[in-house]
Every structure is written in C-alpha cells, then in structure tokens.
Nucleic acid binder design. Structure first.
Length: 892
RNA sequence: GGGCGUUUAGCUCAGUUGGUUAGAGCGUCUCGUUUACACCGAGAAGGUCGGGGGUUCGAGCCCCUCAACGCCCACCA
C-alpha cells in the first residue's frame, strides 16, 4: 500500500518548492558527491537586465533534462549556474530607469562611481530574482559553484586573458572606424548590429564641374570627407585617371584632395562604376584607406561627423549641423551648382544598435581591438584559424578536439561567419563592466595590473561584455588557476544555446578556450530555436508579448511547463507557445499521478517476494514487458542524440496509451488471477517509467517516488526503493533480462483489434455502456484472451465457434484476423451492414491488387531486399484472409 | 546578390539512414460520471505530405524547378 493517501489531483504548487529544497540539501547537485565519468554543462548565464522569460525556461528545461539524464546514468554531473553582468544592456536599462524617474543625465549627475553603484544595486537585485527563478524551473545546478561574469574570479580571468593577448600582440590600440551609437555614446561590435531596411535616396553627383567622374551615394553629407574615388583597374572609362589627384571645393574647412585609386572590388557595372571613398565614415572605405597605406600610396582620412552626431569643424560651413540638416544643405548646394545628376529612391539596409535602436554612425576612433587574422606567436595560426579548425578538423587536426554542432546545418553558417570576421572592437565607452586593465602615466602605458607609484590612471573604457562570456566555460572552473575542477571538467561535455547567439557567443567561446587552453570549450553544442507567441512572433523583453514562466509554473506546475516546451519541438526550429500546450502538459502530469495513485493503492505489496524473479504469466504481461523494453531503448537513444521531443513523445504514448489504457485496464481484471505477478509487473513498469520521466518532469516523479515504499523489486531494483535516496540519483534502467517478445506483441495486437472492433460496433449501434453484449468469434481464441476481450469490450457472453452464425441479428466485422459477430437483437440494420462490408471489401481488393502488382513486378523482386518482399507477402496473406472472411460474412 | 529554414489533418507540430494503407496533441462530432484520473474514458470524422518535373522496383523523405512565408549574411557605392 502506498504510505499515504495520494490526493485525487496533482497540485504542483503544493510540492515543488519543498522538493527542490530536498534535492538541494541532498548534496547531489554537487559532483563532489557523485562518482563516475565527469559530465559538465555550463549554464548560459542570463543577463541581469531583468527577469527570466520563456526562452530561459526552454533553456533550463533542455539543460536540466540533459543533466538529469546523465546523472541518472551514473555520471559525475556538474551544471554550473551563473549570471551575466551584460555590460551595455544593463547600463542602458538602469540609465533609462533613472531618466524615467526624472534624472536628466544620469552619467553627469551621478558620475562614474555613483552610476556604477546604482547599476550594481539593480544588478544584484535582478540577480537574486533570476537565481530564484532558476530554482523554480527545477534546474539541478550546483549552487556551490555559482558564478557571475563580473565577480572577482571571473574578473581575474578577464584581466589575465587581456594581458596575455596583449603580450601576444593580438590586442592592440588603434585608430579605426567603429560602429558608433550616438544615442548610447558608445561603440558596438559588428555582431551587435541589427540590420533594418530603410527607404532612402541614391544621389548621383559630381564633386565639381571639372571633376571627371560621377559617383553615387546615399550619404551626400559624408562626401565632405571624401579623399579618393575608387574605380576598377580595368575600367576603360576611368583607367586613364588612376593616380591623378583633384582638389575640389565642396564647402568643407579645407578643400580635399581626391585621388583616383584602383580597386578590384569595385563593380564597374554598378551605378557609375566609381565609388566615392570616405575613409572616416565607412568600414569598407576605411579598409581601402588601409590598403592604400600598405601599398605606399596613402590617401587622407577626414572625419566630418563627430561622436555627438554633429558635423565637425572639418566640415567647414556645415560644422555643428546635424547630419540631416547637413545633407539637405549639401544636396541643395549640389543642385544649385548643377552637380546633382540624379536622385532615385532606394531601399537600403542599415545597421542599428541592438540596444539603443539608433542607426549607428561609422566614425574613426582610437579603441582597443583584437586582431583575429594575425598569426599567434608560437602557433603559426590566427584566432580565425582556431575558430575554423575547432568545428572542422578539430583543433590542431585532432578529431577529439572537435566541437560538433547539432543540427549540423549551423556549422556552415558558423564557418561563413568566421570568414567575414573583422578585428573585434573590445572597448566600450560605458562604465558598467570590466574596466580595461591598462594604466597610463604621461606617455607610459602598462597592461595587466596597476603599477606601483603615483600618477597612474586607468583606461576609462570597459570591455565588451562578450569578452568575459567567451571565457565562461573555463573561468567558471577557476582559470587562470590550475584547479582540480578545470582539470576534471574542461573541455565541458555539452552546451545548449539559441541560434541567435551562435555567432556572438559560440565563436567567442571557441576563440577564448582555444587561445587560453588549446582546448575546445565543449564537445557538443545543441542549438535550439526561439520561443514565439501564437502568431509566430518572437517573445522579446521589449515588445511585452511575454508570458511570465514563473506565473505559468505557479498555476500549472514546472513539469507542465517543461513538457510544453520540450515536446512537439524539433532541434534548431522555432516553437510557438500557447495556453493549450501548457494545459496538455498539466493534464499529463495529472495522468501520471493518477496512474501511480491507482497502482500504489491497489497493489498489495506485502505479498511480493523481494527476490522472486519477474515471471510474466499472461499475454498482457509479456506484451507490456516487451513493449517497455523497446521503449527504454528508444528513449535512451533519443536522449543521447539530443532528441528530447521524440524521447518525450514516445514516453507519453507508452505511458498514456499502452500502459494506462490497456495494461492497467487488463490488470484490473487479472489482478484476481495472478495477483502477485501482475502486481510485480505493475510496480516494475511504474518504477521504471518514473525513472525515464524524471529528466523531463522532475517534480511530479520525485513526489510519486516518495510514495513508493515497497520491498526491493526483482531485477536489480535498488535496495529499499525510494526509501532514502531521491529519484534524482536513481540509476537509469538498463535491460537486465530479455523481455522482447514479438509473438506476444503480435497476438496482443490482434486482441486489441478485436476489442476496438466490438467497441466500434457498440458505438455505431448506440449500445449503452452498461449493456453486456453477446459476441461470437470464428476461429481460435484462447481462454485468457476471451476474458480480456470480454472485460474491455463490455461483452457478457463470448463464444468461439467454427462457423459463422446465421440470422439477421448480428452486426459483424473482421478484426485481428477473425470474423466477429455481435448479437444485437432487433437493432441491426442489415442494409447498413452489407454496405459496410461491401466498402471494406472494395478497399481490401484494391489493396491486394496493388500488392499483387508490386510482387509480380520482376524488377521489384529482383531489386527489393528480401525482408521488404517478405513483409509484403505477409501483408498480402493477411489481407487475403481478411477478404475471405468478409466474403464469407457477406453470404450470411 | 548569397545562404539557411519552413510549407504534412481545422490549429500546433512529429515523421531517425527512401520500403509501399502517413502519426500525435489540441480542436470537432457521437456516447459515457464503471471507486486511478472529467486535468477522464470509448468510438468516429478529418490529409492527392505547397505546385510541377525527375531519379528509383518503390519518394513525405533524394535531385531539379517554381511559389509563398520566415531568418541570417554581404564592401546594395
């Protein structure tokens, strides 16, 4: 007997917090208390910008399912929880809040220390909220190893990395064009740009009347800073001008010299075939500027737009104007001089700042950069090479050091992205984040840590937040110290992330660990899609269409939420989330609860002999054990392949369909007959499906587990099942006996067919469920099956006969290879019956025909594998037998 | 301009290397409160797998092509 009465419905909210607490206290979240092969997963640290959303719930469900699966399989599992200080987003958020509270300019009013303090307060609060939410989600992480990208240890790792890279000449300070958010007053990396389409105008113009080449531009005001015109070297129209310089007067402070240069990348067929080169305000043009410099044929660089978004003094009469005003004025001026040839509408894609939303300006500035192309001393390859190797040949060509991306298609876009990578702009002009570990005194500069003595000032800028998250897999393990954790758990085993940060994060993790440790960060990375709302729109922090996962958990339970996020989803694809999904998840948790409630309250455990082997007595016994064994294999295989959805769906189908609807119903009647064995099998299967379900639905399974208080089950059930140790660390089932029984499965499925057929007839003739009908079956049915059929199909009398009965009072069908007659005196509609049979007959004839055709085909029999032919023949035989039965029935 | 994804039942989606009458959940219809569960049970209806072409003995799955939708990338000057 179950120890306590289990309530009729499972109310998740009553149990979850307490269960989590028990797990946590048990110590098994900590790998130090586990044995086995190490298996580590680093939680992608959520940003401390606010609260967790459904995307995080998805991630936690995936991670935790994986880590629980591995823990139950006997691995020494570590899931490190953490949060990300998310430099720019967090500062932006806090500044916005302060402005909403009435502050005009938080940076000015509070100063660096004051503002950072405010942000820290916010971040700390947000952090603690987030950590609680992670617990609510049931995530089995090791809280003793909690990490934060901005804590002391992680900061130490960041500084160490920066110093090493600087010493290796990979990090440099340089004057280059950056993406500048005027609104945010900071740089952004290329990866943080969000491209949007914008309607604009393409102006075709000349710098002056006597300038020989016409150019086109969407940014006329930047032409004030043009210093060259690039043309294709083979372009006959312009070839002759290459190398010449023209001084033009466009109204800027100093009339610029425009040099005609050649460049292979210029498309002679596009526009006028000539490009106005603005080194200061275009990444591409800046690259040309560098190329020219390298060629020893330099061109000038003239910044005409400043960090404040206004025209600079170099812009002469335009100085101080906004970009828009300057453009209008310049276009008007061109028009008045007859220099404007054309004005066309154009749709253009422009980069906007992911956080501030404004279109970024390209402006040259002195910033800190990470060179991704430079050969690393002593290694003979660049960071880019390392990033490439890691997903193809494996680092240094070692297959073991390869990161496998699932689904595979993302590997291609990763590589594509690596190719396009430019030097990474590391410095940000914000205050919240790791301050660049560089100190200046006069012309002296020291990198690493603050030097002794007076007068040193630290660089004002902070590091791009991805610099710290890139080192996450090893900074969390104590690097740069050579800790035991680092040795044990790195490279980590597995990581999951959304495709939207594939480039942003995956590439940088590979880069950092390849550089610092000559290791990959993890062996496998599983890429999931986004959680969208009903209309397929992404849930986002800003758009407010978010469903709060914590509210869902409180109302429906964490397990229900996890089910709704994990099932019906395919790897790498987006998933829509809506109420009905959670409800069906909740319904299932309740179903499992009630299955357990029934079994635990009806099984007489006292009569079970602890060590007696499991010996299936009935057909149903053999069938369910055989089915269970297949299930166990399938679920394990799917989980190993990160196919969470498929594993879960198979489990659900087995649990709800085969186990509950069939075996349990049969057990009710057979309980009297072979009570002990039935009980043992019920417990055997229940125990094991709870284990299999645990990674998906940790709470409800753990709660049910507590109700288990039975003698040790046969076949390696753990001593005193469920008494002391939590389900969480229960061994994953491995088939210890061969229960596979094809024969039983086959016979049972014919029994199922007969039952369904009779139920069908009852439903068709609206026979009340209370009415016992009489049934005749032609052929052979063993006694045991008769009993099952009788009870499941509401049959009173069941006779097995040699010949079909005669008379008008039978509704009939063919099922399970047998003719089935249901006696329904006075109810049978003879016409309907024969029509039904006729239709069935036609279908079958067609089917048999098509099979026969196929089998007669010489090519088919020559080329198809034997097993396909055999199974086809068998199908044909079955169909023929059925047809025969139907025909003989029609004669009745 | 390039790449990727999606298109399967009314809705949301599975469908693992091509094997022959395509599955689930939700919804719909009919029936049912039998002491595990109405967050339930029984039964049913519902699909020419986006269009076209091809390869193959055999295609939802492979190839080509077209279309729609979505995402990503690019030096769209």
């Amino acid at each position: 007997m179950g120890k306590q009465e289990m309530p009729k419905a499972y109310e998740a909210a009553k149990y979850e917090d307490a269960i989590y607490d028990t797990w946590d206290k048990s110590g098994f979240f900590n790998p130090d208390n586990l044995t086995g092969e190490p298996y580590a997963v680093m939680m992608p640290p959520p940003n401390v910008t606010g609260v967790l959303h459904l995307g995080h719930a998805l991630e936690n469900s995936i991670m935790d399912t994986m880590i629980r699966f591995q823990r139950m399989r006997g691995k020494k599992t570590l899931l490190v929880p953490g949060t990300d200080h998310a430099a720019l987003p967090t500062q932006a958020k806090v500044e916005k809040m302060l402005i909403q509270q009435g502050m005009k300019n938080p940076r000015l009013e509070l100063g660096r220390e004051g503002l950072v303090e405010k942000i820290r307060e916010f971040a700390d609060q947000s952090r603690s909220t987030i950590l609680n939410q992670i617990k609510k989600m049931g995530t089995s992480c090791d809280w003793s190893r909690l990490a934060y990208t901005f804590d002391e240890k992680r900061s130490a790792a960041v500084n160490e990395l920066f110093s090493r890279m600087y010493k290796d000449g990979l990090i440099y300070r340089g004057y280059r064009v950056v993406n500048w958010s005027v609104k945010g007053q900071s740089t952004c990396s290329d990866d943080e740009l969000v491209y949007v389409e914008r309607a604009t105008k393409l102006y075709t113009m000349k710098y002056s009347k006597d300038f020989p080449i016409t150019i086109a531009t969407t940014r006329p005001e930047t032409k004030l800073g043009d210093t060259a015109v690039a043309v294709h070297p083979e372009d006959e129209r312009y070839k002759k001008f290459i190398g010449q310089t023209f001084v033009v007067d466009v109204g800027s402070a100093k009339p610029p010299s425009i040099k005609i240069i050649s460049n292979d990348e210029v498309d002679p067929t596009f526009g006028t075939g000539a490009v106005g080169v603005t080194p200061a305000h275009s990444m591409v043009d800046f690259a040309m500027y560098e190329t020219q410099k390298a060629k020893g044929d330099p061109i000038d660089i003239i910044p005409v737009i400043g960090g404040d978004g206004l025209m600079t003094p170099e812009a002469g009469e335009y100085a101080g104007m906004s970009v828009e005003d300057a453009r209008a004025k310049f276009v008007a001026w061109l028009g008045s001089r007859g220099l404007l040839e054309k004005e066309e509408d154009l749709v253009q894609s422009v980069g906007t700042s992911d956080r501030f939303g404004d279109v970024v300006e390209s402006i040259p500035m002195t910033q800190w950069w990470l060179d991704v192309n430079k050969s690393i001393s002593g290694r003979g390859k660049s960071l880019k090479d390392l990033m490439r190797e890691a997903v193809t040949t494996g680092l240094n060509g070692v297959e073991d050091k390869k990161v496998t991306i699932t689904p595979d298609r993302f590997t291609k876009s990763y590589l594509d992205r690596v190719e396009h990578l430019r030097d990474w702009c590391l410095s940000r002009q914000i205050w919240w984040g790791h301050r660049i570990p560089v100190w200046y005194k006069g012309s002296e500069m020291v990198v690493g840590s603050q030097p002794e003595g007076e007068g040193w000032t630290q660089d004002e800028d902070t590091l791009d937040t991805w610099f710290s998250s890139g080192s996450w897999t090893f900074s969390t393990l104590g690097w740069p110290e050579q800790t035991k954790d680092l040795e044990t758990f790195h490279p980590t085993s597995w990581m999951q992330m959304g495709y939207e940060i594939l480039y942003l994060w995956l590439m940088r993790m590979v880069l950092m660990s390849a550089y610092a440790l000559d290791q990959i960060p993890f062996k496998d990375v599983y890429i999931h899609g986004m959680v969208c709302d009903e209309n397929g729109k992404k849930f986002s922090k800003s758009s407010g269409n978010g469903i709060d996962p914590i509210e869902v958990i409180e109302k429906y339970g964490c397990d229900a939420l996890r089910m709704s996020l994990l099932l019906g989803v395919s790897p790498g694809n987006d998933t829509k989330f809506f109420l009905e999904k959670i409800q069906s998840g909740r319904n299932f948790t309740n179903k499992l609860w009630n299955i357990s409630r029934f079994i635990l309250s009806s099984v007489d455990t006292s009569s079970l002999l602890p060590s007696s082997p499991l010996s299936p007595q009935t057909l149903a016994d053999r069938w369910i054990l055989s089915r269970f064994q297949s299930l166990q294999r399938e679920v394990t295989d799917h989980l190993e392949a990160f196919e969470f959805s498929q594993a879960g769906e198979k489990l659900r189908d087995f649990t709800w369909g085969e186990f509950a609807d069939w075996y349990l119903e049969i057990a009710k009647i057979q309980n009297t007959k072979s009570k002990i064995q039935t009980s043992a099998i019920l417990l055997y299967v229940l125990e094991r499906i709870l284990v299999l379900w645990h990674p998906f639905m940790p709470f409800v399974t753990e709660e049910i587990w507590k109700q288990f208080s039975v003698p040790p089950l046969p076949e390696g059930g753990p001593g005193g099942v469920g008494v002391a140790s939590p389900l969480m660390i229960h061994p994953w089932p491995v088939p210890s006996l061969n229960h596979l029984d094809r024969n039983a499965e086959e016979i049972f499925s014919s029994v199922q067919e007969i039952v369904v057929a009779i139920r069908n007839i009852r439903s068709q003739y609206k026979v009340s469920p209370k009415t016992r009908v009489s049934v005749m079956v032609v052929g052979e049915v063993v006694e045991e099956q008769i009993e099952v059929i009788k009870s499941l199909a509401g049959v009173g009398e069941m006779a097995v006969v040699q010949n079909a009965p005669r008379g008008d009072d039978y509704a009939s069908t063919v099922a399970g290879g047998r003719q089935v007659f249901v006696s329904l005196v006075g109810l049978v509609d003879k016409q309907k019956e024969s029509a039904k049979l006729e239709a069935e007959k036609e279908d079958l004839e067609k089917y048999i025909q098509s099979l026969a055709l196929k089998l007669a085909d010489e090519e088919f029999s020559a080329k198809a594998p034997a097993n396909v032919i055999a199974s086809m023949k068998q199908k044909q035989d079955e169909a023929k037998a059925k047809l025969q039965a139907i025909e003989s029935q029609m004669k009745v």
